[in-house]
């Protein structure tokens, strides 16, 4: 059995490999590494916190049940994001209406520092990006929010890298237009 200290220095793919060998601690570390990221990603689909929490939990349960099918030579990040995306899409198909992510989805506490941060974010490019086409916004978030590479994004979005590049170019062009208009 591998100790938690040994697990912590390993890559997600190695941790997944250990999990396949029966190390439960390895999967716990993966949950700790990815829970936040998956939550934010799903929140962009579901639009509300309660659903995003449920779907994040569902994503990890699915991942745990099918970890034996994960190919450790591939990217774990792309794999888990694919599961998250499919879970979110299924949820959106089940629920009759789809709530887009609100303009200010972040704050529930009226903390002054946070309010300042919110007003700063109002002018951030991400606020503008939310008005882009859904796929463009998704590609943009995966690339610059989650730092996935083009191949990983293509896997998550079930498309090819060329299409991802086209989505990114169009999204950046729109945002660049917004930036030049603002200045």
């Amino acid at each position: 059995m591998t100790t938690v200290e040994e697990c912590e220095i390993k890559s997600p793919e190695e941790l997944a490999g250990q999990c396949q060998a029966g190390c439960r601690d390895a999967f716990e570390l993966l949950v700790r590494q990815y829970a936040d990221r998956i939550f934010h990603f799903i929140l962009r689909w579901s639009g509300n916190h309660a659903d995003a929490q449920d779907l994040t939990q569902e994503t990890f349960l699915k991942a745990y049940r099918s970890i034996h099918r994960f190919d450790t030579t591939c990217s774990f990040t792309a794999w888990i994001f694919t599961i998250a995306r499919n879970t979110a899409i299924n949820h959106c198909q089940r629920t009759p209406r789809f709530d887009p992510l609100p303009e200010d989805h972040r704050s529930s506490a009226p903390d002054p520092a946070e309010q300042l941060e919110v007003s700063d974010a109002q002018s951030s490019l991400w606020t503008v990006a939310r008005r882009l086409k859904k796929k463009q916004y998704e590609a943009l978030w995966l690339r610059y929010g989650e730092d996935l590479d083009l191949t990983e994004i293509a896997r998550v979005m079930r498309t090819n890298t060329l299409h991802v590049r086209v989505l990114l170019h169009r999204a950046r062009r729109e945002l660049a237009r917004h930036l030049t208009h603002r200045h």
Binding site: A35, Q53, S124, G145, R172
Partner: peptide, 23 residues
């Protein structure tokens, strides 16, 4: 690109602290 990368962290919602425990 620089703007997007810089403001990505600020754009994240605050995840509930008990989320990992719940999972």
């Amino acid at each position: 690109i620089h703007h997007l990368r810089q403001s990505a962290a600020a754009d994240r919602a605050s995840a509930p602290p008990f989320l990992e425990t719940r999972i």
